[in-house]
Write a protein that binds this DNA or RNA. Structure first.
Length: 447
RNA sequence: GGAGAGGUGCCAGAGAGGCCGAAUGGGGCGCCCUGCUAAGGCGUUGUCGUGGUUGACGCGACCGUGGGUUCAAAUCCCACCCUCUCCGCCA
């Protein structure tokens, strides 16, 4: 543990498994082809060629080094024996060899970094079980809709940005004054509701997950480990002066918590959770969902995450989905679960499920949770390993995570679904313990 | 932010250009001794890469990180990171 922290400075040392590319080129190609991005297959070919070249150069370099090492030992021996002349001659020979070695070594370094850069940009292999598809439209619904009424009343068909602003619990205007577009602010019971949602999500998972309060500003290495860098730098807020980044999700610090460490197998699965603010530039989303609280630069989220062995991972994926679903179900919101198809799978993802909640005021299904299995993709980047019990050597761990609850969208869905005829909001019973005795958000007396 | 001390294997801790992948002690593991336990004896114990008849062999790399000097660096030089102590500042 103690030594582990120091080693984080140089990750990622390993990216996608190059050896798999060597031993099962066809299999890797087939898997990645299912993502439907021809560019990836080009990169794959480049990577394979660079890998071959790298090994050739490396063995040349190592051979030269071996000879230099041998000669240097001779020099030491000759010096001790007092044979100065011969020592001089061997030194000269070694010097020549050393120059040659340096030339090859420089080439090795260049090819190595080129290969590494390339591999960092190649996405994860989709699971065999992930459904085929080209994009969002092809994601099959695997459960639901659950809790969806036959029809909604007119008073539920009001967008939350209107109803919540009227109730005085949402103040977008002033948030924009303070911080600019796509920032939002909750007030009064609206703010309390946000906090209550976090509390509920944490408490519901405290039976198995260790609560963490991680840093929310992280180093470049940390943001690279989870896959946000180098490819998606524009999506994150950077604090350049200090070379730090604002986390887009607690997944980032939680995944790197054990970076560079070797865990004992009996510690797996290791479950962690955190409630943190999340920061997203939403660079590609200008003009979309700009009203209300559906797409904002800063929001709160409770994340649940696990490190597992490869064998434990599928079961853990089911567990995380069930936990995220359980909270949404308990809140009584209409929801469905979709299975992300290969064409829509995020770059780091091996398999993903989204939970969507229906918001009658916006008439939209809102993604409130994304639960993903990363296989060894992030763990390789983070150099996160475990030692199998009773065996020598180490194995790369698997990581999985999901939102236990993404606050603003669940908040919006509650406001819209639970709006009463008089305009007040009935607060879901599971939240009552966290709301200081309030069971509704009342309409202000005078307006 | 300023001054000083320090970062070596699972842990503690030596080593101060070559004989050092690294003494010694502890821990772990295996075996022996022992009626059991304790004590004792002997052996063993890192990671990564690469080649191979694919384990129990060769080669290379790894002493905080990255550069440099040298025939040769844990050891000398430079930069950075981190830890500790003191001062300053501060929620």
């Amino acid at each position: 543990m103690a030594g582990g922290a120091d080693r984080t400075a140089d990750y990622p040392r390993r990216v996608i498994d190059v050896r798999l590319l060597r031993t099962d080129r066809a299999g890797v190609t087939r898997a990645l082809a299912r993502r439907g991005d021809p560019e990836v297959l080009v990169q794959l070919d480049q990577a394979a060629a660079l890998d071959e070249r790298l090994r050739e150069l490396t063995s040349q370099r190592d051979d030269a080094r071996r000879r230099v090492n041998e000669l240097s030992k001779q020099v030491g021996q000759l010096r001790r024996d007092g044979d100065v002349d011969k020592a001089e001659r061997v030194m000269a020979e070694s010097r020549t060899l050393g120059d040659a070695e340096a030339a090859v070594a420089a080439e090795v370094a260049a090819v190595d970094s080129e290969l590494r850069e390339l591999l960092l940009r190649i996405p994860n292999l989709p699971s065999d079980h992930a459904p085929d598809g080209l994009g969002e439209a092809d994601n099959p619904i695997v459960k639901g809709p659950v809790n969806l009424p036959e029809e909604f009343a007119d008073h539920q068909r009001v967008p939350h940005w209107e109803s919540a602003t009227a109730l005085g619990i949402l103040d977008g205007e002033r948030a924009v004054k303070i911080s600019g577009a796509m920032f939002t602010m909750q007030r009064g019971l609206g703010a309390t509701l946000s906090r209550a949602l976090c509390q509920l999500a944490l408490d519901r998972n405290a039976d198995a997950f260790e609560e963490i309060r991680p840093p929310t500003l992280v180093t470049t290495a940390t943001l690279t480990a989870t896959g946000q860098l180098p490819k998606f730098a524009d999506d994150s807020y950077a604090i350049e002066r200090d070379d730090l980044w604002c986390i887009p999700t607690a997944e980032v610090p939680l995944t790197s918590l054990a970076a560079g460490e070797i865990l004992a197998e009996d510690r797996l699965p290791m479950r962690l959770m955190a409630s943190t603010p999340c920061y997203r530039r939403e660079s590609g989303a200008a003009g979309r969902d700009t009203r209300g609280t559906l797409r904002v630069h800063e929001f709160d989220k409770v994340e649940i995450l696990a490190y597992t062995t490869p064998e434990q991972a599928p079961g853990m994926l089911d567990e995380l989905v069930a936990r995220a679903e359980g909270t949404i179900a308990e809140l009584g919101l209409p929801y469905r679960i979709i299975d992300i198809c290969t064409g829509d799978l995020g770059q780091s993802h091996h398999r993903s499920f989204d939970i969507e909640v229906y918001a009658p005021g916006c008439d939209a299904w809102l993604e409130v949770s994304s639960i993903s299995w990363f296989s060894d993709y992030q763990a390789r980047r983070a150099d996160l390993r475990y030692r199998p019990s009773g065996e020598k050597g180490t194995m790369v761990a698997h990581t999985l995570n999901g939102s236990a609850l993404a606050v603003p969208r669940v908040w919006a869905a509650i406001i819209e679904n639970n709006r009463q005829a008089d305009g007040s909001i009935a607060l879901p019973e599971p939240l009552w313990p966290y709301l200081r005795g309030n069971r509704t958000i009342p309409v202000p007396a005078s307006r």
